[in-house]
Write a protein that binds this DNA or RNA. Structure first.
Lengths: 350, 350
DNA sequence: ATGAAAGCGCTAACAC
DNA sequence: GTGTTAGCGCTTTCAT
């Protein structure tokens, strides 16, 4: 590749100083129109492209924001076998994080912000997030994707917003969705409308949002005097575990009346597993999810779930950061969004 | 936000020189283990995060690659009215570019590359792509998203791969899909199996890939001695035009037997428009698409189309760039991928 | 094994 | 309105 043209080259060719070149690009109103034209011509001829690195160094800002997501959001199946089922899995459709990312992209675009999406394989002791943090002015992180210390470290040097979390880390802004209430609404529907009494619960407690969902579930059952089932393991991105949990449920019987899953993804996998086992959903077992991903809307019948405003979450995060970036040192803000119960057919309705 | 700690701070705290700090991070084998430990401790205490900008400046590389997509890929509906229909539109589902982007992300991630997704609102005369180009080591661009001069300008200073194009720009690598053959296969199916003779064609000729599709269509019809219809306008991201073209078709009659669309997105919109007009697809008019997006698989019946290996396209692009980046000055490579005819029900099959 | 010092390309005072 | 110049934080010879 040819050596990149620099301000010096352009300045020389245009017969002006490098400062003038710089001004011509960044503060055209301070430069004589004719001079600007001369500079632009020289720049074009040289194919000059300002170095974002140098600019960022000098300005102390990069003009980009970072997005840090879970690993599993992007990870493809490891082997060929998995890859086969993969084609038919929920992963074919955009999941929660994909939808949120789309919102982030849209908002970044309309604000002229570059978006940096982090990689991995980072040098030894540096957490992956640093890889991203070193090149952006602000950071968006999915709740649970970063340890609290790392979040705090990042928040100490730049605006950070945690997405969908329930924990308010010192210095980090948050975009919250009321997971607890959403799951409570869904559970209440199952108890009051369907009169279910034997529940099973598929999910995990690894992040604040999952815990909030579980809480909404537990508290509603307790209020209704319905026995609270244990948490059977299911992790986003690990469909095998979900299937295994369903298998265990079938093996150990008796079958619950309804299987409440803490993500749509788990619900989709669970329904598939149940149907393969010859059971009807919702005939033999009702199933519910959480998130509102597309795959759920494509099931027959449609998945009963709690819809998160995913794109809005992403947009809100960018908006928060953009404000923090040009506004003064703001107090940490928390944007609250609602999660809406959405009755489909898998809960037994219709 | 607190001032970021720099190498100087770390060096001072650890009682070493900045060079040693730098070495400790980048060439640990050249530094005494004990020194490394001292440095790391100091760095941790200070919450030191290397500045990617400074590093990039000094090294001449950023470690990031850029993705430049069409505007319409990301643009949300402009007004509220549009936003309403939006919910029901194909845009709900990932389109061609989204699927390709996913492939790009996956591959970047597994290679430890940061991915920069460009914004807009760029200073006057600089094309948007420059905004991205200034911050990355290599660039991926969708065919037609950039003018040839811009592509060449970018290619002069960094590895560039053009996605899905048919034109081989000087210095740019390409990932090609045989659009011509794909469309020829589809058209042949319509001619031989269904014996259609009255065709309509919805699409555009604005990019090499679209032109290639049209060529595959035309040549197949010509060989079969079937009259070649004109191109009725339909542009990705502009569903209104597509609907208008369908309306014109209905108004001006007689109805063709089959409507060949050069994208799935156009096909989905066209089918919707036809059905709203009280027509049956494929009963009254058969319709076909091109791309293989998810939305097409969800139609009743399934959309007949030509499937592009979208994720594979994205991955191939990154692979190409990564090779170019660490390999020597390579000749421009062209990766060829196939587009597979996929018979659904909208062509009249079943 | 470690330190000194010269850039990398650009911005932003501050002069003129 | 334009030029001079001192950094921005890091890498990287070249000495030591």
């Amino acid at each position: 590749m040819a050596r990149r043209a620099t301000v010096y080259d352009v300045a020389q060719r245009a017969g002006v100083s490098i400062a003038t070149v710089s001004f011509a690009f960044t503060r055209p109103e301070k430069v004589k129109p004719e001079t600007i034209r001369t500079v632009m011509v020289a720049a074009d001829e040289l194919g000059y492209v300002p170095s974002a690195n140098a600019r960022g160094l000098a300005r102390g800002r990069t003009g980009a924001i970072g997005l840090y997501a879970y690993d599993y959001v992007l990870d493809p199946p490891a082997d060929e076998h998995a890859a086969e089922g993969y084609e038919r899995s929920a992963r074919l459709f955009p999941l929660y994080a994909d939808e949120v990312q789309r919102g982030v992209q849209l908002e970044c675009r309309s604000r002229g912000l570059a978006l940096m999406i982090g990689g991995n394989r980072t040098p030894a002791h540096l957490p992956h997030v640093i890889e991203v943090a070193g090149r952006v002015d602000a950071l968006i992180a999915f709740a649970g994707a970063l340890s609290v210390p790392h979040l705090e470290q990042a928040a100490a040097r730049m605006p950070v917003v945690e997405l969908g979390g329930e924990v308010r880390v010192a210095g980090a802004h948050t975009v919250l969705v009321d997971n607890r209430q959403g799951m409570a609404d869904l559970t209440a529907h199952l108890v009051r409308v369907h009169r279910y009494e034997r529940f099973a619960y598929l999910g995990e407690l690894g992040t604040p949002e999952f815990r909030a969902r579980r809480e909404g579930f537990e508290s509603t059952l307790e209020e209704a005097g319905v026995p609270v089932p244990p948490v059977l393991p299911a992790h986003p991105g690990d469909d095998a575990t979900t299937s295994a949990s369903v298998a265990a449920l079938l093996r150990e019987g008796p079958l619950p009346q309804v299987l409440v899953c803490d993500t749509d993804q788990a619900a989709v996998v669970a329904i598939d597993a149940l149907r393969r086992a010859g059971l009807s959903v919702p005939g033999d077992v009702a199933v519910t999810g959480f998130d509102g991903i597309i795959a759920g809307r494509l099931l027959q019948p449609i998945l009963t779930t709690v819809r998160q405003p995913m794109a809005a979450i992403g947009r809100a995060a960018v908006r928060l950061l953009a404000d923090a970036l040009d506004g003064a040192e703001q107090p940490t803000t928390n944007e609250d969004l609602v999660a809406t119960f959405s009755a489909g057919g898998t809960c037994g309705c219709d």
